[in-house]
C-alpha cells in the first residue's frame, strides 16, 4: 500500500518505517508473554508455554491462571489499545483536530451512561444476563452519541464546532450519570465505579473470540478508509475535489470510531488517553501523516501501549491490580505536554 512515488531506490523514509514496524512488533512479542508470566503469582515463561500448548504445568493452578485469566486479559489489553488508538486517529483526521479522541467527543461518556443505566437499574446483580445487559448498554450509549453527532454534522458543518458539540454531549451524559448515581443503590454505584476504573479482566474465555473477532473486524474496516483519510488531510473542500464524498466519509469514520470505542468500553470500561495519545506517538515514530503507514503503525503502537498499561497494572503483585485509568494519564500526559511545547517544531502541525 505504498503511496510513495519512486519506489526503485529505497529511501530513508522507507527504511525508517520498516524499523518502526519491526520494533513495534518486537515489543508486542516481548510484552505479551511478560503479561502472561508476571502478576500476583510469577509463572516461569517455560510453564506459560506449556500451559498454552500441551496443558501440562507443574502446578494445576498455573494452567488455570494463564489460560483463564491472563491470556484473555493480555488479548483485551492489546486489542483495546489498538482499537482505541485507531478510534482516536480516525477522529483526529475526520475533525482535522489533533486533540480529538473517543473520550473527548463524548463517545466513551455516552457508553458509560448506557452502562450506568443498566448497572444502577439491576443494582449490582451478577451473572450472564446482567453481563450481557451491561454490554448492550455500552453499545447503545456509544452508538446513540455517534448517531447524534452524525445527525448534527449535517447541520453543523464546521468540524471545530462539531467537536465542541461532542464535548457538550459528553458533559450532559456525565451529569445524567451523576443524577443516576444519586438515586441508585449502594451496590449499583459500587459496581459502576469499579467498572469505570477500567480493567482488562472483564472478558471471560467464552467471550474472548467474540471480543477479538469484533474488534479485529472493525480494525480491518478502518484500513479500507486509508485513501479518503489521506484526502481529508487537505480539508474537506480539497477532498471533494479529488473525488471523495467528504460528508459521507466523515459519517462513516464517526460510526466506525464509535463502534470501536463502544466494544472496548463495554468490556473494559471507559479507558482514557490511549485514543488521544497513541496516534501522536505513531506520527512521531514514523515521521509521516500518510495513513498507509500511520494507520498500521497506530494499530501496533496501540497494542504496545495497551500491553504496557496491563503489565504496569499487575506490578504490585500480591497487593492487587492498579486500575488502568490510573496508568494511562501517566503515559499520556507527558506525551501531550511534549507535543504542546514542541508543536512549532513538529512536522505534522504546520
Amino acid at each position: 500500500m505504498h503511496l510513495l512515488p519512486k519506489p526503485r531506490k529505497v529511501k530513508a523514509a522507507d527504511s525508517r518505517h520498516t524499523i518502526v514496524f519491526i520494533a513495534l512488533t518486537a515489543m508486542i512479542a516481548v510484552l505479551f508473554p511478560t503479561m502472561l508470566s508476571v502478576g500476583a503469582v510469577d509463572i516461569p515463561l517455560s510453564e506459560v508455554w506449556k500451559a498454552l500448548t500441551d496443558g501440562e504445568t507443574q502446578r494445576r493452578s498455573w494452567f488455570v491462571i494463564v489460560t483463564q485469566t491472563r491470556f484473555p486479559a493480555a488479548c483485551a489489553a492489546a486489542f483495546s489499545g489498538a482499537a482505541l488508538a485507531v478510534a482516536g486517529l480516525l477522529l483526529q483526521t475526520a475533525f482535522n483536530n489533533p486533540l480529538a479522541g473517543p473520550s473527548i467527543l463524548g463517545v466513551s461518556t455516552g457508553s458509560s451512561l448506557g452502562v450506568a443505566i443498566v448497572m444502577l437499574a439491576i443494582g449490582g446483580a451478577g451473572g450472564f444476563a446482567a453481563h450481557s445487559a451491561v454490554l448492550g448498554g455500552a453499545l447503545i450509549g456509544a452508538i446513540a452519541v455517534m448517531i447524534l453527532l452524525v445527525a448534527l454534522s449535517s447541520l453543523v458543518r464546521s468540524a471545530t464546532m462539531l467537536l465542541i458539540v461532542g464535548i457538550l454531549i459528553g458533559y450532559l451524559s456525565s451529569s445524567a450519570i451523576s443524577l443516576l448515581n444519586f438515586f441508585a443503590t449502594q451496590e449499583g454505584v459500587h459496581s459502576y465505579v469499579i467498572w469505570g476504573l477500567g480493567n482488562f479482566y472483564g472478558i471471560s474465555v467464552p467471550e474472548l473470540p467474540w471480543f477479538c473477532g469484533l474488534t479485529g473486524l472493525l480494525l480491518i474496516l478502518s484500513l479500507l478508509f486509508i485513501k479518503p483519510l489521506n484526502a481529508l488531510l487537505l480539508g474537506e473542500r480539497y477532498a471533494e475535489n479529488i473525488g471523495v464524498r467528504a460528508v459521507r466519509v466523515r459519517n462513516g469514520l464517526l460510526l466506525l470510531s464509535g463502534a470501536l470505542t463502544a466494544v472496548i468500553t463495554a468490556w473494559c470500561g471507559p479507558i482514557g488517553f490511549i485514543g488521544l495519545v497513541v496516534p501522536h506517538i505513531a506520527r512521531l515514530a514514523t515521521g509521516t501523516s500518510n495513513h498507509a503507514i500511520l494507520l498500521p503503525a497506530t494499530i501496533l503502537a496501540g497494542a504496545v501501549i495497551g500491553l504496557i498499561c496491563a503489565v504496569v497494572s499487575v506490578l504490585p503483585a500480591s497487593h492487587g491490580i492498579i486500575p488502568v485509568n490510573a496508568i494511562t494519564p501517566i503515559i499520556g500526559v507527558p506525551v501531550i505536554i511534549y507535543i504542546i511545547l514542541r508543536r512549532r517544531k513538529i512536522f505534522y502541525f504546520n
Binding site: M1, H2, L3, L4, P5, K6, A13, N96, L224, I226, K227, N230, A231, L233, L234, G235, Y238, I242, G243, V244, R283, T288, S289, N290, A292, F347, Y348, F349, N350
Partner: peptide
C-alpha cells in the same frame, strides 16, 4: 494554507491521482 504538513511533497501531489487509483489508492 491547507493541512497535510506531515506529508512529503510527492505524497501530497500524489493525492491528485486519487480520482484514477483503486480502492486502496495504490499508485
Amino acid at each position: 494554507r491547507t493541512g497535510g504538513g506531515g506529508l512529503t511533497v510527492s505524497e501530497l501531489v500524489a493525492l491528485g491521482r486519487q480520482p484514477y487509483t483503486g480502492f486502496l489508492g495504490r499508485l
